[in-house]
Design a protein around this nucleic acid. Sequence first.
DNA 1: AATTCGGGGGA
DNA 2: TCCCCAGAATT
Length: 362
Amino acid sequence: MNFEPKLISVFSERLLQWYSRHKRDLPWRNNRDPYAIWVSEIMLQQTQVRIVIPYYHRFLKRFPDLATLAQASLDDVLKLWEGLGYYARARNLHGAARAIVQDRDGLLPDTYRGLLDIPGIGPYTAAAVASIAYDEACAVVDGNVVRVLARLLGINLPYSEKGAKAIYGNAADELLPQERAGDYNQALMELGALICTPVAPQCRRCPAQAVCKAHLTLPDPAVLPPKVKKKERPHHDIVVGVVWRAGRFLVHRRPARGLLGGLWEFPGGERRPGETAQTCAKRKIEEKFKIAVRVQEQLAVIQHGYTHFKITLYAFQCTFLSEQARPPEHVVVRWVTAAEAERLAFARSNQKILETLANPDV
DNA sequence: AATTCGGGGGA
DNA sequence: TCCCCAGAATT
């Protein structure tokens, strides 16, 4: 794209001035420690600021520097991440910290290119850390930036469209001032978060009002960027059991990768069509864990949504009857008390079961 | 190029 | 309900 130089300078100057007056006081803006900024940017991936804030405080209190994080166990890191979602972020952050201590003398790369080599750091996060922590002049492109650029420049393309990444990326590069890139990047995202919002943007308060193509030419600037329709999410019935044996119940750890990787959960599985929930619980638990159980009363029914599907979770009380001589393979099992379970990281849906166990209300 | 990865809050 | 959030890795 070819922008008039005037648009570029007017936009960045007004944006930075607006930012200096209206920016939120966010915890990661209080220092320029590359490690702290890295942690914040990983947490902020696809996650709103207000959700991240308490997690960020707890994380930096518990793991104040890269070496401390590297020494921690993955279980401890996952426990702190519990409920935040996208757990590969925590696994990558922890693994990267260990690799950096081992191979790089504990120092995070200090360039955009170098940062891209770190697991969990992609184009956005590399540009964010490089510009904010190291003053490198590289442009971030996140959901906020795409929305602001689409409206400012009248780009009528969903970011997911073929070739759209390059168009938005080039636009962001051309608008980026060479000075104060970190402040500029944060200002652009702040504008998207506070003014140029997905619905009902506050154009009246926008510092770019006078140069914004959408505001100047469209009845409703919010039509940009164009929405893409989402596929509907399939639904599954999942049945799990709380299997009691001498005051403890059975939990197992999910495989290290994939959905909810590394988190703990109650045993169970998907109900087949025509199968009762009780039969399903018995079948799933006995097959996988090589034990015999009796399924008892229903404990909870939980609705839960994931990115690509929805589940209804039926939880049943169960009692342990007997076990086979040969233990199950490739399954990490632990019999825990309620107090011990509190120290393990559970998926959100399973946390609701734990809460029911703790407060057997009604 | 598409799909997979969580969970929550606001409209 | 639906949408989308300071995206990255995998297929």
